[in-house]
């Protein structure tokens, strides 16, 4: 093509398959948009039950992301940078929630933390802490499913990062904590961001583990996906409206963060 030299035209096969991939995801979402009752949208969304579920979803998913960040960063570092025995086993273990059906994850959490389990009973007797049917339980369930996404992303980045920068920093007199903060962390910052976004997205859409472990209590554990599931029966229009909110919030965040963390073009 004249005037566009140097810009290779993408192969037709790639274009076609890429378009199918986009369609696969876009078409159902367009279907949702087309089915939405736009007339009653405002009413559906300003309904206190909706705003409450949205607020709960945002706070719990952000809290879960925070927990994943605080716990996942050291774990990823240990997995990538040390030769602790049993790392392979630990890595596989940490990734298990990705393949476990979320409902089973919920049952697993129940087995461990319900009041009748030894650990859950102990937490309740000693600290008066009950995770089941609590907002903390929602955060726990969301963290359980979201943490692997963060760890796997950050660990991969740590493996790729050039350790020699850290060695140079050490010869310059920097202590390990300083090296991590000023050399390692800046090098893996994009991956930390991407991992956090992935974990947050996973936590935001969490349903199975949450409903099984934390139940479905209005204002306490009824996050947006649970509210959507309940509303599907009684008021599909409201359910779709709620889903649109979930989609809109996620879409805005993902687009806004894309350039920054998910790799610039």
């Amino acid at each position: 093509m004249i005037g566009r030299r140097g810009r290779r035209r993408p192969p037709i096969v790639a274009l076609a398959l890429g378009a199918v991939a986009v369609a696969l995801i876009a078409i159902p979402l367009v279907g949702l948009l087309q089915r939405a009752a736009w007339g009653s949208l405002v009413d559906d969304l300003t309904d206190p039950a909706s705003t409450e579920a949205l607020r709960l979803s945002l706070t719990t998913s952000l809290a879960a992301t925070g927990v994943a960040l605080v716990l996942g960063l050291p774990l990823a570092w240990l997995l990538a940078r040390t030769d602790l025995p049993g790392r392979a086993v630990v890595r596989a273990l940490v990734l298990l929630p990705m393949v476990l059906p979320p409902v089973v994850g919920g049952v697993a959490l129940l087995s461990a933390f319900s009041l009748r389990s030894p650990l859950g009973g102990w937490l309740h007797d000693v600290f008066g802490l009950q995770l089941t049917f609590s907002t903390a339980g929602v955060v726990l369930a969301e963290t359980f499913v979201a943490l692997p996404f963060f760890v796997i992303t950050v660990e991969a980045a740590l493996r790729q990062a050039d350790e020699r920068y850290e060695q140079v920093a050490a010869t310059l007199g920097a202590r390990p904590a300083t090296i991590f903060r000023r050399v390692t962390l800046p090098a893996i910052a994009p991956a930390v961001g991407a991992g956090a976004v992935l974990a947050w997205a996973r936590a935001l859409g969490e349903f199975g583990a949450t409903v099984t472990f934390a139940g479905n209590i209005a204002g306490r554990t009824r996050t947006l996906p649970l509210a959507v599931y309940l509303a599907l029966e009684s008021d599909p229009d409201a359910a779709i409206a709620l889903s649109l909110v979930l989609l809109a919030v996620s879409f805005v965040v993902l687009v806004a963060l894309r350039d920054r963390w998910l790799g610039r073009s």
Binding site: S114, G215, I217, A218, G219
Partner: peptide, 21 residues
């Protein structure tokens, strides 16, 4: 309502008692 957990159906409701708290 703040202490009512809603099961999607009768079985899920029962499970909250048998398995859950």
């Amino acid at each position: 309502e703040g202490r009512v957990t809603r099961g999607q159906n009768a079985k899920a409701t029962l499970t909250a008692v048998t398995e859950g708290d």
